[in-house]
C-alpha cells in the first residue's frame, strides 16, 4: 500500500514546513506530501509520516530543510516560457528605460528574477538587453543594467551559475539567432557567453526572509513561484515586493496567475496579448 498521511500528520508536517521553509500547504494538498515526500520518508527509515516528522524536528535544521524544499519545489522552466513577458520587456520596458537613461533620470536599471531556477529567465532578459543596446548604440550599455536572481534550490542555482545547457534545453523556445549569437557549442553542450553570464548575480534565498538590503527595482518577475504559497503568504509576499519597486516599475506573474485579492498596490496593464502589473501611483 502506498504510504498515506493522516490528517494529524499532515498538520504537523505542514506547520513545520511553513515555519522552516515559508511554504504553506493548504487543505487538500495531502496528496502532494504523499507523493513528494515518500522517498524522503523512506530515506530516514521511517515507516510513517509521524515517525518522519519526529525525526525531522529532532534533527539539526539544516539536515532536512533543503531536502524538503527541493522535494516540494519543481524546477520547470524553459527559455521564454510564455513569451509575453519577454515581448513586453523588449517592446515596452526597454524603450522606456532607454528614455530614462537618455533623460538622465536613472543611471542603472535593476531587475529581479525572484525564482530564477536554472537561469533561463534572467539570461533571456540579459540577451534581450544586449540586443537592444546593440540596435540603439549610444549612451546605454549592458553595464547600465543589473539583474538580481534568487532561488531556493541550490542545485538549480549551480546550473544557472555554470551557464551550461544541453541540446534539449536550448531547443525549447530560444530563438535560433540568439542561440547562435550567445552560445558556443562544445560537443553537445551549449555554453552561454561570459558577457551574458556576467550580467546576472545569483543568490540563494528563501522568500520568507527579509528583503532588507535588496534595494529597489525597475522590473520584478515573480513567475510561477506563488503556486504553493498560502493566501496570507502571497499577500505578504506581494506587499513586501511592492515595497522594493520604484515608481513606474513593472511586475510580472506567471500566465495563469493573478494578483487580484492579494494586493491592491498594483494595477493590471495589457500590452498586446500580454499582461503585467504597474505599481499604482
Amino acid at each position: 500500500m502506498s504510504l498515506k498521511i493522516t490528517g494529524e500528520e499532515f498538520n504537523l508536517l505542514r506547520n513545520y514546513i511553513r515555519k522552516e521553509c515559508g511554504i504553506t500547504l493548504e487543505d487538500g494538498k495531502e496528496y502532494l506530501v504523499e507523493s513528494r515526500f515518500g522517498k524522503l520518508v523512506a530515506e530516514t527509515g521511517s515507516g510513517t509520516f509521524g515517525e518522519f516528522y519526529v525525526k525531522v524536528v529532532n534533527s539539526p535544521k539544516e539536515k532536512y530543510r533543503d531536502k524538503i524544499i527541493d522535494a516540494i519545489t519543481t524546477n520547470e522552466t524553459s527559455w521564454y516560457r510564455d513569451k509575453t513577458p519577454f515581448v513586453i520587456f523588449e517592446e515596452v520596458i526597454l524603450p522606456q528605460l532607454f528614455e530614462k537613461f537618455r533623460a538622465g533620470q536613472i543611471a542603472k536599471a535593476r531587475i529581479w528574477s525572484v525564482a530564477c531556477s536554472t537561469g533561463q529567465e534572467p539570461y533571456s532578459l540579459a540577451m534581450l538587453i544586449r540586443e537592444h543596446c546593440e540596435k540603439h548604440p549610444g549612451l546605454v550599455t549592458p553595464s547600465n543594467f543589473e539583474i538580481m536572481c534568487t532561488d531556493i534550490s541550490s542545485s538549480a542555482l549551480f546550473i544557472a551559475q555554470s551557464g551550461r545547457y544541453d541540446q534539449v534545453s536550448v531547443s525549447r523556445g530560444l530563438p535560433e539567432n540568439l542561440k547562435n549569437k550567445y552560445f558556443t557549442q562544445k560537443g553537445r553542450v551549449w555554453l552561454l557567453s561570459d558577457e551574458v553570464k556576467r550580467m546576472i548575480t545569483l543568490k540563494k534565498f528563501n522568500l520568507q526572509n527579509s528583503f532588507t538590503g535588496f534595494g529597489s527595482f525597475d522590473v520584478v518577475l515573480c513567475r510561477n513561484v506563488a503556486i504553493y504559497f498560502s493566501e496570507e503568504f502571497k499577500k505578504d509576499l506581494f506587499f513586501r515586493l511592492s515595497k522594493t519597486m520604484k515608481p513606474d516599475s513593472f511586475f510580472f506573474l506567471g500566465s495563469s496567475e493573478s494578483i487580484s485579492g492579494y494586493s491592491d498596490k498594483f494595477e493590471m496593464k495589457k500590452y498586446g496579448t500580454g499582461v503585467c502589473y504597474r505599481l499604482k501611483k
Binding site: 523512506a42 546550473i159 544541453d166 534539449v168
Partner: peptide
C-alpha cells in the same frame, strides 16, 4: 507510485526522478 518510490529508497536508492521530467529537473 509512492509505494515504488518508498520501496526503492528503502532498498538504498538516494533519489528518484519520475518520468515525465523536464531536462532542467533531470540536470538539477
Amino acid at each position: 507510485e509512492r509505494e515504488n518510490m518508498v520501496k526503492a529508497i528503502q532498498a538504498g536508492a538516494k533519489n528518484y526522478l519520475s518520468k515525465p521530467f523536464t531536462q532542467e529537473d533531470l540536470t538539477s
